[in-house]
């Protein structure tokens, strides 16, 4: 999912950075100090997810969790993911420095989109419907991210087209696993602590 420094063209880098800064600004505005711990936890969860490996078929994939982060945070997903990606780049050499903007945009924008699309579904009174929407959100976020990664590559040069297509195909198993995991996580969180998904305390469901 992370693109390294040097691969993308300058307009893509600059455009990605500008949009990411705008997203982070909106996110910071919508996030108050009382929510900081929750945002921090999800930011850390993204980091940890990258070393949770789940088997699928003969191989294994690691979780991304940007769908779940989006469902819980909305716009605050932007600052949360920027911080996680910055820490990964600086302390683990994941990705790079100047592509931070593009990487943040590619992972956080799908999270926000999923929030907009699936939010209505996960507050449904039927747990089955909610879990399904959670799964759609989890798989959908990975799908959009993959398309955006492929697009950033394709926009940087036609020579990248094949690699972009390969990225798309390689991530189908990730989408399947992510869908199951996010669906189950939504189901559990709804039951145990609905405030986590910003559902009010009087909310009746599940």
């Amino acid at each position: 999912m992370h693109i390294v420094d040097g691969a993308l063209s300058v307009p893509v880098l600059a455009g990605g950075a500008a949009l990411a800064i705008a997203g982070v600004a909106v996110g910071l505005k919508k996030m108050d100090y009382d929510h900081l711990p929750q945002v921090g936890i999800l930011s850390a969860a993204f980091f940890i997810a990258s070393y949770i490996h789940l088997p699928i078929g003969f191989s294994s994939v690691h979780l991304i969790l940007n769908g779940l982060i989006g469902l819980a945070l909305g716009w605050a997903a932007f600052p949360a993911l920027l911080v996680a990606l910055l820490l990964q780049a600086v302390f683990f050499g994941f990705g790079g420095f100047l592509v931070l903007g593009v990487n943040t945009l590619n992972i956080a924008l799908p999270a926000v989109l999923v929030y907009g699309l699936c939010r209505g579904g996960i507050v449904s009174s039927s747990p089955k419907v909610a879990a399904t929407w959670g799964a759609v959100g989890g798989a959908g976020a990975v799908a959009i991210t993959t398309v955006m990664v492929a697009a950033s590559l394709a926009l940087s040069g036609e020579a990248f087209l094949l690699a972009a297509k390969a990225t798309l195909i390689a991530h189908i198993p990730v989408m399947i696993v992510e869908g199951f995991v996010t669906g189950a996580a939504v189901l559990l969180i709804r039951k145990v602590k609905p405030e986590f998904l910003n559902l009010s305390e009087e909310w009746e469901g599940g």
Partner: peptide
């Protein structure tokens, strides 16, 4: 099960 684990972990 891993989804439940992550949900519980976050909570």
């Amino acid at each position: 099960s891993m989804g439940y684990l992550i949900g519980m972990l976050l909570i």
